[in-house]
């Protein structure tokens, strides 16, 4: 038991060191390294949030680009049209996505399994068409988000870092809470969880709303980084495809999975820029290979082989025993 404790200290120390190193990266890293860092942190957040749905709640949504789009457009409208700050756009994005997620939950939660998946996608496609024909958002022309040119890259980097770490902390806290037990039991066996007293609808709704709001906030920073938004890209299914890729290759239903997945995805995609045309084919082949070799993702394979978990949400008896003795 002493060993477990010691191990925990080492782990916490290692995580702290990594966070500090990452925080000061803009001071010594190249611009390229910083831009890669931004992408990795933001994709970690997208992955964590999709994992909350697909990995734990059994809600396989193909419509989370809705919230990336809402975040992006909020950033554009708030800063370009209303000339307000980025902080305001973050708050507005959270508010709008909260209301929108809650409203669409009524129809789409009536659908189950693959119908839910298709339903979320249809909502996103409908929103895409609507935005293309909506004067208020400048039709299909979209916006240049000019505020992005004026803020230094290091600020965007730190924003992305906070959002990436924040997503991990958020999911960790949720899993350590009472709702976490319910979520894990739903992940393992939904029918049995309901009989044990888990309120499926309510728990799923919480997850959907939390995931959607945080995805929208991530969307704000994503589009500050891209600096240009139009409906086709903002509400494109590519966003969700990459979330699914990240979570599945990293490890569904684990906290570490989306982190590993995001790192692999971002770096792989950078290399694949040298193979235009077949880059998607290679990405697909990598996904298929990983799924075949490691059905539970990279993290699942590591856990099986070495028994390592970085962010353990296990309720262990040793913690309490030690307090007592």
């Amino acid at each position: 038991m002493q060993g477990v404790r010691k191990n925990n200290y080492t782990k916490s120390l290692a995580i702290l060191v990594i966070v500090i190193v990452l925080f000061f990266l803009p001071q010594y890293g190249s611009d390229y390294a910083i831009s890669i860092g931004v992408l990795i942190f933001l994709y970690i957040s997208l992955g964590q949030m999709w994992n909350l749905l697909g990995g734990y709640s059994g809600l396989v949504s193909l419509g989370q680009q809705i919230f990336v789009g809402i975040g992006g457009y909020t950033a554009a409208l708030v800063t370009e049209v209303w000339h307000q700050s980025i902080a305001v756009s973050l708050v507005v994005a959270a508010g709008v996505s909260l209301v929108f997620a809650f409203i669409i939950s009524f129809p789409i939660f009536k659908m189950r399994g693959v119908y839910f998946t298709i339903g979320t996608w249809i909502v996103s496609e409908a929103l895409l068409v609507f935005f293309r024909n909506w004067k208020f958002v400048n039709y299909d022309a979209g916006y240049n988000i000019t505020i992005a040119y004026r803020i230094p890259m290091s600020q965007i980097y730190h924003g992305a870092l906070v959002i990436g770490i924040g997503s991990v902390v958020l999911v960790y806290l949720i899993l350590r809470s009472r709702m976490g037990l319910a979520l894990m039991s739903m992940r393992d066996n939904e029918g049995a969880a309901e009989v044990r007293g888990v309120r499926l609808y309510r728990t799923k709704l919480y997850c959907f709303v939390i995931s959607s709001v945080y995805t929208a906030i991530t969307g704000v920073v994503l589009y500050l980084n891209i600096a240009y938004i139009k409906p086709g890209a903002a509400f494109g299914i590519d966003w969700t495809v990459c979330m699914v890729f990240i979570v599945v290759i990293g490890g569904l239903g684990t906290i570490e999975g989306p982190i590993i997945g995001a790192v692999v995805y971002v770096i792989l995609r950078q290399y694949l820029y040298s193979f235009p045309g077949i880059s998607m084919v290679i990405l697909g082949a990598v996904a298929v290979a990983i799924i075949l070799l490691m059905p539970k993702g990279i993290m699942g394979a590591i856990h099986k082989k070495f028994g390592v978990e970085v962010f353990s949400v296990r309720r262990r008896i040793d913690e309490r025993l030690e307090d007592g003795s």
Partner: peptide
């Protein structure tokens, strides 16, 4: 048996109290 396979025995039993009661 429909145990929650990815959770420990202890956590499985906790589900009963936390979620059921």
């Amino acid at each position: 048996p429909r145990s929650f396979e990815g959770m420990s025995v202890y956590e499985n039993v906790m589900i009963g109290g936390v979620c059921g009661r």
